[in-house]
Amino acid sequence: MNSVATRIKDLLGPEIAGPGFAFLAVMLFFGFASPQFLSEATFGSVAFQLPELGLLTLAMLLPVLTGGLNLAITFTANIAGLTVAWVLQANGGVDAGIAWFALGCVLAVAVGAATGVVMGLVIAYTRAHPILVSLSMMIFVRGLGEFLTRGGDVSGFPAFLQPIGHGSILGFPIPLLIFIACVLLWHVLLTRMKLGFNTYMIGSNIEAARYSGVNTRKVIVLVYTLSGAMCAVAGIIMLARFNSVRVGHGESYLLITVLACFLGGVNPFGGFGRVIPVFVALVVLQLLSSGLNLMGANQHLATAVWGILLIAVMILRWLAAQLMILNRRKG
């Protein structure tokens, strides 16, 4: 029994406190405030909305753990989506076969990874600040996308894409299943693989990690590469959801992904943070916006409330730290 408790504690870590409390607070508040909140409809809408933001947040998480940021995630997702779209359009558009879609996905992931490789190399070899490098990559990728699409939409995809965006298996939306698979993949990567281990070490002190024999450059390049590849997954899901691709789709998610990471207890300086608390934080954000929606508010109010929630959690953390000091002084 005890060991099960420790296992669960190990899995979630101390970071779960913030998002955990937020989850309870949101459930209680909306559960009482709105009778329709605890219904299948709410969870259905959360389940369909969660994956896009969630996948992009996973893409943001790895760089944040190394003490950096990847500001290019949303436009990398767009470019990856465009890659799929072009492969499909060049091979029959609505009549394109499933093999072409598979090829498109592979190329999309390659394109996403390629942006990551470039950023990773620049950051690892020049020690330029990741905010700058990814910011200029963002401007470049956005420009590239706008140049290639002339600011318009690309649409007209085969019908078999429909279920990937809107279908369900055993009542679980397919995008959600893909997202959960990615969450598990990231969880295993970060807790059970050398790359994940070294990601945390680099996030805390890159030089000390290098002195301990960690190939710090390789880790940084891989972190940004995986981040780019995850963007591509998000881009493919977005393509299937909207049945079109436009550069700028999901642009507003960019800073929300950073917010979700911080809400999930990730250390802004890097080195600490786990996938599961971030997942809980994402669920809280979506529940909040669904709940507010039910009460007649729109997404913009939800965005503001997300910001307030982040500040509230940070202030609570500060209060907890103050209380701990006070207690120790008394004792």
Binding site: A297, H300, T303, G307, L310
Partner: peptide, 23 residues
């Protein structure tokens, strides 16, 4: 006052300012 580092605090206020303005 709360020792929140500036990037976290301003990403939060970014969402608050913009969300409330649009709302």
């Amino acid at each position: 006052r709360f020792r929140i580092i500036s990037i976290v605090a301003t990403i939060a206020t970014f969402n608050i300012y913009f969300g409330l303005l649009m709302f």
